[in-house]
Design a protein around this nucleic acid. Structure first.
Lengths: 141, 141
DNA sequence: CTTATTGCAAAAAATTTGCAGGTAA
DNA sequence: TTACCTGCAAATTTTTTGCAATAAG
């Protein structure tokens, strides 16, 4: 499901297989964050017989191709998402939801801030996870 | 080994055992970052028979007491360290070494930066890991 | 004394790997 | 055709848990 998804893989120069296309489809069409197991469940619903190990291998290939980014949050297994730019993750300690800051230049700002404070160490990439309370949970009380 | 270490545990109000004292000793006396297994090896050298599961349980107790902080770096198992203030980690992609930025207010600065960009989400705690090249490896060429 | 902690063993959770057959380019 | 990818099975790695014995306060 997704001419567009297949095209994205082709353009990256990686071999296109149904498994990879569906793994990518889950991430690209939802825009959300998923563990390998969640991706496996969703993609597997459309592609019976899909193995979890294949999902891991697909995610690695997609990551190498630059389409997918992975994050390690303060708790739980790794999560994967369609790569946009490098950005922080906000994990709500109440509902567990994962979101992103509004400002889309925040990644660059944080990188500049960190680099300025790290004399002698050239930071090229940053992994940021904030823990706190999201607006909805704060409103609920 | 370490009246001082034992005192630190007592002051936190947690039960003092040789196991906890040695686990804490490894972190407090070195100031470095260690995986649970590394702590187990070091503490176990001084306390034969120490179990890895006990190290994990000790780390949890020390963490709850506020003495120890844990981090999840972009790769590898969790690392633990004596807690100072919340600060970023810098992982060198060449030598694998873990260090901290020079500026000691960087943790607060990053938190303010992130909070300002996250309207509606109250960030209380931040996990930051930068990847790049440390000064030594940059110099080596 | 009373409750928390440990060692031991086993399990759970997360991820990786070897290999033989199948498939994309 | 030819190298790469997949399913399948099994192994690794990292972390957690149950339980009886032990030790801390």
């Amino acid at each position: 499901m997704g001419e567009r998804n297949i095209k994205a893989l082709q353009e990256c120069g990686i071999r296109v297989t149904p498994q990879r296309a569906h793994v990518w489809g889950v991430l690209a069409e939802s825009g959300g964050h998923f563990t390998a197991e969640e991706i496996w469940e969703r993609a597997g619903a459309l592609l019976p017989g899909l193995e979890l190990s294949t999902v891991y291998r697909s995610l690695e290939a997609l990551g190498d191709a630059g389409l997918v980014a992975e994050s390690r949050l303060p708790e739980g297994p790794r999560v994967f998402e369609a790569r946009s730019s490098s950005h922080p993750h906000l994990v709500c300690v109440v509902c567990g939801g994962i979101s992103h800051p509004d400002a889309d230049d925040i990644g660059r700002r944080l990188l500049e801030t960190l680099n300025a404070a790290s004399e002698g160490f050239e930071v090229s990439e940053m992994h940021v996870a904030g823990r706190g309370v999201c607006a909805r949970c704060a409103a609920d009380g």
